[in-house]
């Protein structure tokens, strides 16, 4: 279990560094950069929820609620920006 947590942390570190690097790239359109950054953030959000908060053990409702919420936030940001 400790190894699983450690691998999750390593992946979260990798995604955070990727987030910071992506923000320095020049993209053809702003929406591409925003979409990439928000998708990386959503991946980290779900990793923390499912692995650190042990949401993978919970009832399907709680899993679906978190996935739908983060999808709504990312979609809302992409539509509004």
């Amino acid at each position: 279990m400790k190894n699983n947590l450690f691998y999750t942390l390593a992946l979260l570190f990798f995604l955070t560094i990727a987030n910071a690097l992506v923000s320095n790239f020049s993209f053809a359109t702003k929406i591409t950069a925003v979409a990439l950054l928000m998708l990386l953030a959503a991946a980290k959000f779900l990793l923390v929820a499912f692995r650190f908060m042990e949401l993978h053990k919970a009832h399907g409702f709680w899993k679906a609620a978190m996935i739908v919420l983060v999808a709504l936030i990312v979609s809302g940001v992409l539509i509004a920006i």
Partner: peptide
């Protein structure tokens, strides 16, 4: 769970405020 909530909020705040 409350402590992890702080992580969750920050993970979406961070790109929106600092990176985009």
């Amino acid at each position: 769970a409350f402590w992890h909530l702080c992580d969750l909020i920050w993970l979406v705040l961070f790109p929106m405020l600092y990176l985009i």
